[in-house]
Design a protein around this nucleic acid. Sequence first.
DNA 1: GTGATATGCGGAT
DNA 2: TCCGCCTATCACT
Length: 256
Amino acid sequence: MPVRAESPQGRFAAGALQIDGQVLLDADAHGKHLLLELGDDRWLHIHLGIYGTCTFGPPPVPAPTGAVRLRLMGANGYADLRGPATCELLEPGDKKALHDRLGPDPLRADADPGIAWRRISRSRTPIATLLMDQSIVAGPGNIYRAEVLFRQGIDPGRLGRDLTFGQWTAIWADLAALMADGMRSGRIDTVHPEHTPEAMGRPPRKDDHGGEVYVYRRATMPCLVCDTEIATTVLAGRNLFWCPRCQAEPDPPAAP
DNA sequence: GTGATATGCGGAT
DNA sequence: TCCGCCTATCACT
């Protein structure tokens, strides 16, 4: 079944023309990169970046609203892509180069966390920064890095080489579980059932990013577990959040 | 209406 | 380390 493609916004008009009428053969994802196979070893490469969205709807296909970079239409509905950082057609061989520059993805069956550990265990960079480096681990972003470090009680400023293998194994397993859950639900929830506001007898929360979290964007709010004020700082241009008490380790590293 | 902000990242400095 | 990309949303006038 061929797919219809168009670029109402116009910025991907040439690409949409090449896609229009082709059969989508396969889909692949590595970290934050989505890849759709078009045939002849050609793949459509999409990365949403920080702004991008992809929305889906059933037929009938409505007039596009907003800046729709790419609209794909099939028998069962349509998909609208807005504001992606990347929307391009890859030439043969480009896909392999993409995989090669990305670290293991906790959601992929072929992922080898040992490859990431080799980099992390030799690094003098804070673990909170390493977890955002897609060439080390592919997939986690600013929410998961803050939340997984909280859940594992790890100081974000701890250097990669000061992390124990056990801590890394726990981080990896937790990321795999959290991200798989996020894929299923379409939102990021990281709070254990016993720490939900209801279970703790607290008023309901109003986080605006969609999910229940421990520390992300909760600066100056009390920690859900110990009531300590959540700390925040800008690390490598991104807002980092952590609980100074729950994530204080016996051998205190410098603040990030 | 205006401005700040956002689950990211590449390139310039 | 900072800037800019690119779009939508929300708080605030």
